[in-house]
Design a protein around this nucleic acid. Structure first.
Lengths: 225, 225
DNA sequence: CCAAAAGTGTTGAAACTACACCCATGG
DNA sequence: CCATGGGTGTAGTTTCAACACTTTTGG
């Protein structure tokens, strides 16, 4: 490294918005802060980026350390850099959006310092984390319509009724059953597993066919619901 | 500032991808680097974030200093943080996507150290700027379809033929004239200025009605082309 | 056979596509 | 009156939305 500069530098953190669906509602994973500032407040899991790790590695590490959790889906959301967003000084935060499958979500929900909160009953939040969550929610609700990321919120095998319920939660409105099914199956992205749920009337279980999605995408296909 | 930490910190920079349309092609504004590393190479305009300015302010300042240019549109694109992306050490870059109106684009193109390049004839680029440009181009081509940002690439007043030509460039394919017009005018976002171009047969000139777009957006309207 | 939940068919309206055509102006 | 480019109209097809309907299972 032959060139080095010495100048005042901001700190850089990562914060993760982990969403999950449980009990018919969209939830987000928060931790209680053990250190000042905002000691005792709820906040997004996250922390300082270390010199030897990429941003995404940093997000995964912090998530694992603070919640013991490895998300099914992780994408960069936005970088928040207002001068006064952190009372400790200049701290720039790279926010990530993550999705968790329902079963795993429940497993992690027992911890004392990390719990799931329904999005319409959030506690007071540290820093500008309220704003970050608003943006993450907006991104999720928009993106679920043109990218096959909803499947990362469901178990690997799911029924069409479950998938429809998920979309109704995310979109915030009811969906016509017959039309939803025709559209979803018409895309040819769901593999019939041959299995059935054990409901009153057993429902066919499907799997998302990621390989087929890749193939179709390369040929110009666009997911849309 | 009662809490302060002392720990190794990355540097943070901003880089801007400024797009413009000229001579029927999509172009991007690059500068020639005067300092090492990559001295003499072409690169995105940008530089170090200062402690007292937000990220967007920083992007506007660097753009102004290096190209004398204030973009019509500016949005954050993505943050690049691979450990080895800069030979000087750990440098995280927040990339911005900017759009410039054609007339202003031409004005700035005379400078020696800043010039416009067609996207299919780019020179060798410093750092990971090639990757940043690829992502910016992808975002622009996708976003122009569901957000009214194409207008920021045209003069304030424009004919439908010009608008169509713009979309054909951005989408990379031909568009049916009659259908394009019906769709665009049907949205009710264009104000007829009453003026005409001075072509062989004078064309009606329109303006994008930003206020009306705001109004419709709040009522659930979604731009789409 | 009844309740509950899974799964389907039909139809009219709306949107999209392709393509042919007409119109205004300068030379 | 012709070339150039601006500006429609229409018809066939596909997609969409609404809604009523049938099927399977447990009790």
């Amino acid at each position: 490294m032959s060139y080095t500069y010495s100048h005042p530098r901001p700190s850089v953190t990562v914060d993760a918005c982990v969403f999950g669906v449980d009990a018919g509602a969209l939830k987000i994973l928060l931790i209680r802060r053990a250190q000042p500032p905002f000691k005792g407040s709820w906040a997004l899991p996250g922390g300082f980026v270390q010199m030897g790790e990429s941003l995404e590695e940093s997000a995964r590490r912090e998530l694992s350390e603070e919640t013991g959790f490895a998300p099914a889906y992780l994408e960069q959301l936005y970088t928040f850099g207002d001068v006064k967003r952190d009372p400790r000084g200049r701290v720039i935060s790279v926010a990530y959006l993550a999705l968790a499958k329902l079963a795993e979500a429940k497993a992690a929900s027992d911890a004392d310092e990390a719990r799931w909160w329904a999005l319409d009953e959030l506690p007071d939040l540290a820093f500008d984390h309220g704003e970050i969550i608003r943006m993450a929610k907006k991104r999720l609700r928009a993106k679920v319509r043109y990218a096959p990321i909803g499947f990362d919120l469901l178990p690997r095998q799911f029924s069409l009724v479950e998938l429809q319920a998920l979309y109704e939660i995310l979109l915030g409105r009811g969906v016509d059953k017959a039309n939803f099914r025709k559209k979803v199956l018409g895309m040819g992205l769901l593999k019939d597993t041959g299995k059935h749920s054990d409901a009153v009337r057993p429902a066919r279980l499907y799997e998302f066919d990621a390989a087929e999605y890749e193939r179709l995408s390369r040929r110009g296909f666009n997911f849309e619901l």
